[in-house]
Design a protein around this nucleic acid. Structure first.
Length: 442
DNA sequence: ATCGGCTCGCGCAA
DNA sequence: TGCGCGAAGCCGAT
């Protein structure tokens, strides 16, 4: 299967196949888990799923952590019914995951693909510490990241034809896993769920079942207005699936496949949505995978650096500390509403995320500082934070990444401008501000 | 409501 | 070497 590739070659002696679930936390529509089951059946061996909860994994909010854990408890229950044990490893890679894997004596370790540096480092460490073959499967992108392109792409326009050429091969239905025929006989350590998992119900509801419900809601409603209304924050035309994608509780390929097969969705809505779901998402992964400075100044294009450098000494009429930004106390009511939306709900409409980030550039002493603040707030509050989409979106907004230059302005140079008056031309900012005010506190 | 100018560089055609 | 065009815009002219 072209979707799978070796991370390391090693021995194939062992008693089971392990699927190390690192990003895509679901039991169905999961190429990596499916591949692991195929391998286990070929070997007539049991299959185990392991999720490692790193001690240093910084969850900004208790409810982000709870979203993750509640989703995993659903995974545990489903896998139990499929005769596949689920193990939770808590602590550090070195002291907990690696000893656990050694104790399990796998003949093969299969894991899912994640372009983020920290995940790739973990996989490298594990593959060097245990003597078996490790395989990674990209079940997160439709066209596997390393097949779509072998380099950092300049923009959507250079990646798009490469993806489209491969869609007929990769945008297919996804085989489902079934009850596993080989049982694991060794006594396994019991899962000990963190106390946080017992928090009250969350909004949005975590887990695969809830993710599918959310998709069906969009599929029957928002998609039919998508092309026209996607940039209107109160129109309810967007999918709002990004948190489920981030935690891997819903497969982007499943969504893309169902949308593309539908006969009731207009071609314009279909193409507009698939452009965002496939091209833009996979461009973020391409950027994070091939650009090691995906979260700082060094990752932005040369023209943008040149232009921003020219404006370093421009006077800044407004300068805000991180604390002022975080507590939504700037002079700009629209920006404050954006910040309150992300704090109250862990979500902000995509169009306003760009406005939000661009203002931080105007209100900071340097672009470096702006990137740092935006990433801190993004990762701290968004339920879909710490995701390639977030880093790419922030560098697009502040650093002209994947974008073109525009006529020069103070402070922002040739970075594409966005203004409150521009937003006002497109929708009622007052209505958005009022709507945020009445959102319940979490 | 719609249009053009603003501005840089990649990728492809010549 | 030249040319088309690009991820979400802005502003002013018509």
């Amino acid at each position: 299967m072209r979707r799978a590739r070796y991370l390391s070659q090693g021995t194939h002696e062992g008693q089971c196949v392990v699927y190390w679930m690192s990003r895509d936390q679901r039991t169905q529509d999961n190429w990596a888990l499916w591949y692991a089951q195929q391998e286990a059946e070929k070997r007539q061996q049991p299959l185990l799923v392991v999720f490692h909860l790193e001690k240093s994994f910084l969850h900004a909010q208790d409810w982000h952590f709870s979203f993750l854990c509640q989703g995993l408890q659903e995974v545990e229950q489903t896998l139990f019914q499929l005769n596949i044990p689920f193990l939770l490893s808590r602590g550090t890679i070195q002291d907990h995951l690696i000893p656990l894997l050694k104790q399990l004596r796998p003949s093969l370790v299969v894991t899912d693909f994640d372009p983020l540096r920290i995940k790739r480092e973990w996989k490298l460490i594990v593959s060097q510490a245990i003597p078996v073959s490790m395989i990674e499967v990209d079940t997160h992108n439709i066209v596997p990241c390393w097949i779509a392109s072998d380099k950092q792409e300049f923009g959507a326009r250079t990646l798009r034809p490469k993806i489209h050429r491969l869609l007929s091969e990769f945008l297919t239905d996804i085989p489902q896993i079934h009850s596993h025929p080989y049982r694991f006989s060794t006594i396994l350590p019991p899962n000990e769920w963190p106390h946080l998992a017992l928090l009250p119900p969350l909004s949005p509801t975590p887990g695969e079942k809830a993710a599918w419900e959310a998709f069906l809601t969009f599929f029957s409603n928002g998609i039919h207005r998508y092309a026209q209304d996607k940039n209107l924050p109160l129109a309810n035309a967007t999918s709002r699936l990004s948190a489920y994608f981030h935690f891997g509780q819903l497969s982007p390929q499943r969504v893309a496949y169902e949308i593309s097969q539908s006969e009731t969705i207009s071609l314009e809505n279909k193409n507009t949505f698939l452009e965002e779901l496939i091209i833009r998402r996979e461009l973020s992964d391409n950027f994070v995978f091939y650009q090691k400075n995906y979260d700082n100044w060094d990752g932005i294009p040369a023209w943008a650096k040149r232009s921003l450098n020219k404006h370093r000494d421009d006077p800044r009429p407004f300068l805000y500390t991180l604390e002022t930004l975080e507590s939504a106390q700037t002079h700009d009511p629209l920006w404050n509403a954006c910040q309150k939306s992300m704090k109250k709900t862990g979500y902000l409409h995509g169009y306003l995320r760009m406005y939000w980030a661009k203002k931080i550039l105007e209100w900071s002493l340097s672009p470096e500082e702006a990137i740092e603040k935006a990433i801190y707030l993004n990762d701290h509050y968004f339920l879909d934070g710490r995701d390639p989409n977030g880093y790419t979106g922030i560098l697009w907004s502040i650093g002209g990444l994947h974008d073109r230059p525009f006529s020069e302005r103070p402070i922002i140079g040739q970075i594409r401008p966005m203004t409150a008056s521009g937003c006002e031309r497109k929708f009622s900012t007052r209505a958005f501000i009022d709507w945020v005010e009445y959102l319940p506190e979490l």
